[in-house]
Structures are given as C-alpha cells and as structure tokens.
Amino acid sequence: MSHVWRPLYVVAGIVAAILIIRHFVVPPQFGVWERGYMYGWHNKAAETWWANFRVGYKGRDYCKDCHPGHYKQIMASPHAIIQCEDCHGPAINHPDNPPKLQIIKSRLLCLRCHTKLPYPTSLRSQLPGFLDPNQHNPGIECVSCHNPHSPVLGGN
C-alpha cells in the first residue's frame, strides 16, 4: 500500500507549502466581508489610501472670510448658484499652495452656459444667452462690460 500513500504525502506537502506561502504573501489588509469572494472581498490599505486623497474643492465658506466683497456681491446676483471654485479652480491649500488662483477671462467660459441652445426639455434653452454669440460684440471679452460677480448691467 505504500506506493499509494507516498504520492499522497507529496500532495499534502505541496498543499501545506502553498498555505504557508499564502499566509506570508497575502497582505493582512485583504479581507472578505459578508457578500462572499465574488464581490465582497476588500483591501483595507487601498480603501484608506483613497479616503486620504487630498480634498481640492473647499467651498464658498473657505473663500468668504478673505474675499468678503466678492462673496457678498456674487451671493446677491443671479450667479449665486455658481461656486467660486467653478471658475477659479480648486482652492486646495490657497493661499499657501497655490498662492494664486486662476482668473479666466475667455468668452468660452461664459458661453458654457450663455450660448443659447434650442434644446427642448433641457434647462439650457431657458438660460439667458445668444443663439449666435458672434453677433454680440465679437472679439471682446465678456468681462470688459459684465462683472461676473454681478453680471446684470446696471445692477448692484
């Protein structure tokens, strides 16, 4: 019978070796929760890594103490729905890093909303704008007449 047992010992040895190697190779952060191996296994280290990614967009409250004038002005205008960082870019650690945020004067920034597109069932068709923006002072930056923080001419 020993010719039967010998290969079985070899197989058992290989299985034991794989389990021992597995024990050392698989990081301890790997785990499986209740949904099973197909969808439920997870990796705590990567989860923590993603959770600790830096936050770029800080929100108006981060801006308002140092820029109270601009804050009050835009909050009283139809542009109050637009976040400061939508146009100026993420604050990240401003004013330390970056020390200056973007000021975009391109017409294209305004035309993201103010090219009138005749699209029924989309809010876009109801925004104020121009079907053909080139008919309205072509080549001149919008900001030379309109203050983006208070865009209505003759307004506050």
Binding site: L108, L111, R112, C113, T115, L117, P118, Y119, P120, T121, S122, R124, L131, P133
Partner: peptide, 23 residues
C-alpha cells in the same frame, strides 16, 4: 469645456427640426 455651440457631431442643424434634445 462644455457645449458652446449648436453643432452636434459637428453638424449644423435647423432648430425647427429638433424633436428632442438634452444632456
């Protein structure tokens, strides 16, 4: 950069021909 012109797939279309359009 948003949609700044009425040129879906680079085509010029007549607004009267549109039945549905949305994002």
């Amino acid at each position: 950069d948003g949609f700044t012109a009425d040129n879906p797939m680079g085509k010029t279309i007549n607004p009267a021909d549109i039945t549905k359009a949305f994002f």
